[in-house]
Design a binder for these strands. Sequence first.
DNA 1: GATCGCCTTGGGCATATGCCCAAATCATAC
DNA 2: GTATGATTTGGGCATATGCCCAAGGCGATC
Lengths: 191, 191
Amino acid sequence: MAPNPAAARGQETRQRLLDAAVALVPELGWGGVTTRVVAERAGVAPGVVHYHFASVTDLLIAAGTGFSGGVLDQMAGELTARADIGEGVDWLLGELACYSGVDPASLLMVEMFLASTRLPGLRERLGGQIAGFRSRVASWLAERGYQGDAEVAAAMLAAAVDGIMLHRALDPGLDIAALAGPLRAMFGLDR
Amino acid sequence: MAPNPAAARGQETRQRLLDAAVALVPELGWGGVTTRVVAERAGVAPGVVHYHFASVTDLLIAAGTGFSGGVLDQMAGELTARADIGEGVDWLLGELACYSGVDPASLLMVEMFLASTRLPGLRERLGGQIAGFRSRVASWLAERGYQGDAEVAAAMLAAAVDGIMLHRALDPGLDIAALAGPLRAMFGLDR
DNA sequence: GATCGCCTTGGGCATATGCCCAAATCATAC
DNA sequence: GTATGATTTGGGCATATGCCCAAGGCGATC
């Protein structure tokens, strides 16, 4: 089976559709991304969408989980590379400062949370990714000598991160750096 | 100006539309609520929607902010009635246990967060309500002897609550009670 | 009974949507 | 040159959408 060059081009336009979807969901909302809009953004004819994907929803799920998987994997990798918990929390808050709460990445994540309540397929995939993230963070916490249930602390940390993201969307003036105090206290630091 | 009875009936059907919208947004998503669906749920003809509201979006904003205002007001009232911070945090977690994360109230709140990024009018109103909630909680924290910046702690608490809500939607097995440990630690309790 | 205000009805218009499909395209293999 | 295999095209269909509007109640006032 020779590596068909037409097939290769096909994979590339498929990727362009995925990229377009990732960009459009934050702009228009999960339900606002339509066949024609995503095709136009990707620079292809409308029919291509249903050639590469069974439905618009399928495209959105593939695009969303592809994005979230990458983000969570990289974030877990960088966090667990920190030498101690305090340093990790500080790094995490630094990262959060880059996310305004109304940036595309944050919005896409929240859109996926919501859509997953109506799409079992998405829910299963995203839930698995988050569980993986939590377990990696929990191992890191335990290795770095966290006193208490590391699984619970990791869940609380992940929830806090997303909560902060959510609230920054409404109040851009929220001072991220200041939140370090309570967050560090949560892990028994600064005593 | 006599209290016109026809006008009174009008206000009642207007309220039925608001109630229907509050029920439908969690079921179908913000963008999934259409003129005809909300009219049918309210038991009125489709035309009524655009008689009482300038647009479907207007209806959704009015319904959403009406709901969130009530929830936040009541929650702030009950929380700040607690005698000390530890008791308040425990009560809050108890409340959260009632919200599954996929219950209508939680979903409506998150839908509003997202929609507010695309609707300045909604954003302004919802942002104001959250700010009010935070300032009430901050006063309560300060009065109860919280050591540190009460405004920051209130913001972190509110964010944590919403983050927990978000994560429960994906992982119903998340043990709320266990989160009390890190949360209490955040306020310097249990030392 | 006639008049007046407000609410309600149900249909209609222009537009947008998801998905489909016969025909066109195009680089390669023969 | 022609056949092959895929991708791509652009239009089309049935349906759904937001918003509008002329006509119809319906109770209160005269």
